[in-house]
Design a protein around this nucleic acid. Structure first.
Length: 485
RNA sequence: GCUCCCUUCGUCUAGCGGCCUAGGACACCGCCCUCUCAAGGCGGGAACACGAGUUCGAACCUCGUAGGGAGCGCCA
């Protein structure tokens, strides 16, 4: 190795180390932000935050057929709900057309790219013939050797002149060393006949221009990386670090797709999940830090390192997400949870001004709900009249010999409670039980049926408390009418 | 067809040559607690894909086999 080269390498290394870390999330706006995209975004965001760098958002909208404004908005909404805020962007590729054209022209001028004029049919025939011969289909057209002139032709494209020999080696931060022989690679189209750049060309130009230092993306791109590295070289740019994330599979082990299980992250909000719970779940899906399961945002940022990401695909497990969600429901401050619950209650059409405070509902239900949606459903007994009486509940607890006296005693005690609190309600029920010489079991169940029409609810003191005194007394009277006495 | 990647309990994972008769978590089962349902506590079953090799010693290293995945576009 020559001395000059050695010095340059060393300078390059220093440059790399001093350079601030810049990551990017670069979705194509062809649909909503799904779980896989969300995890990629999270890892990019975490890597940037962990290393004190910048997180850039770029919209890859060069596919004019499939890109839509609604999709852009859906992605932005998803990122926003998750709290994955970007430092720069969003940049739109369609706004950078001039730049791609200029870089492509420079490459042609430098002899590193060339014009080609085959028709699509000719290319298809070429590929078909190669396939039948059992060789890998690759461009073997005449224009690579021709340096053809620029001329008007509906089939004109610009192809990259890929090195014919040697190989490309890169160290992937999750997959390890990957070597790719150049004769596996062909002369990819950089600029299409409609003058739009192709993905592999546009990403490289963008990542160079935006000074991206770590390219973190799905592992469906590992195959593209060698050809992209060749373009970096042709452009004389330094190579960023690459980290290719394994994919997320459905619970059945099948690939997630539009028609198979892939849903928007916003669906998780609708289903009653906390953004932090989803983030925690996604962080642990494919990454770990010893045996730790629970990570605050700060811990994720402090501990995350993309080189600790697993190599293999992982299945999405709703049960574990639900467990995490309930963990946060139980452990976060009730008033913080209440804000999220209120959204759900409003979705169901409940007026929180005419019912218990959402925070009290959170306290009563967080140990028995895995999601906010479930919590809101269970809260219906406090926000609306009893809609359905469970026959089994009536016959078992209202037709029993002690039901009437228990309810009467409860009515008496609850009526004279001076200050209506969970504690005083609890005390009143205890007194009622003592008055009829029975345990809590004999009074709680009839009371529960009176309050809810069912046999299941939170602890009886909370249940009665949240119904409110006036309505509670009324509901006892209604239930009394259903007893045998 | 060709190239590249992956493979530890049902699931997510720990493990980076001896600490492993393989640890944790979710799920499951049992017991305890108990006003119902939960939550909680305690306990239980459950895995190194297979085969060679290297080594005193392999879940960890090497090579094969099998299975899975990705790519081979004027999609991204």
């Amino acid at each position: 190795m020559g001395k000059a080269l050695l010095l340059r390498l060393r300078a390059n290394k220093l440059l790399h180390e001093s350079m601030t870390v810049r990551t990017r999330f670069a979705p194509s706006p062809t649909g909503f932000l799904h779980i896989g995209g969300a995890r990629t975004a999270l890892y990019c965001w975490l890597e940037a935050r962990h290393r004190g760098g910048q997180f850039i958002l770029r919209i890859e909208d060069t596919d004019r057929e499939r890109s839509t404004d609604e999709a852009v908005k859906a992605i932005l909404d998803g990122m926003n709900w998750l709290g994955l805020h970007h430092d720069e962007g969003p940049f739109y590729q369609t706004l950078r057309m001039d730049r791609y054209a200029q870089v492509a022209a420079d490459l042609v001028r430098a002899g590193k790219a060339y014009y080609a004029y085959e028709t699509k049919d000719e290319l298809d025939a070429m590929r078909a013939e190669q396939m039948t011969k059992g060789v890998k289909p690759r461009y073997a057209g005449i224009y690579r050797e021709q340096n053809a002139e620029l001329r008007d032709d509906p089939n004109r494209v610009i192809r990259f002149r890929n090195p014919a020999s040697g190989s490309v080696v890169f160290i992937d931060k999750v997959k390890g060393r990957i070597e790719w022989s150049n004769d596996e690679l062909d002369d990819l189209v950089m600029v299409r006949s409609d003058e739009f750049p192709t993905y592999n060309f546009a990403v490289v130009v963008d990542d160079i221009d935006m000074q991206i230092s770590q390219v973190i993306r799905g592992d469906d791109h590992v195959n593209n990386t060698p050809r992209q590295i060749n373009i970096y070289h042709a452009l004389g740019a330094s190579i960023p670090e690459f980290a290719h994330l394994p994919m997320i599979l459905g619970a059945d082990g099948q690939k997630l797709s539009k028609r198979h299980g892939a849903v928007s992250v916003m669906q998780y909000r609708d289903d009653g999940f906390l953004p932090h719970a989803l983030l925690n779940y996604l962080a642990r899906l494919g990454w770990s830090h010893g045996d730790q399961e629970i990570f605050s945002l700060k811990e994720m940022i402090d501990l995350f390192d993309v080189s600790n990401v697993n190599k293999s695909a992982a299945r999405f497990d709703l049960e574990k997400l639900s467990w995490l969600n309930q963990h946060y429901l139980k452990n976060d401050k009730p008033d913080e949870i209440a804000a999220h619950l209120e959204w759900q209650l409003r979705e169901r059409g409940y007026d929180t001004a005419h019912g218990p405070a959402p925070m009290d509902v959170v306290i009563a239900l967080r140990e028995r709900s895995q999601t906010l949606k479930e919590m809101a459903e269970k809260a219906s007994v406090w926000y609306e009249p009893i809609k359905q009486w469970d026959d089994a509940a009536i016959s078992k607890h209202l037709k029993s010999p002690t039901a009437a006296s228990a309810l009467t005693a409860a009515h008496e005690q609850l009526a004279i409670v001076s200050e209506w609190t969970v504690q005083s309600v609890h005390k009143a029920i205890e007194l009622a039980a003592a008055a009829i010489n029975e345990g809590m079991g004999k009074i709680a169940q009839p009371l529960r049926v009176a309050m809810t029409g069912t046999q299941v609810s939170p602890s009886i003191d909370h249940t009665v408390y949240l119904v409110g005194r006036t309505r509670a007394l009324k509901r006892i009277e209604d239930a009394l009418a259903k007893t045998n006495s």
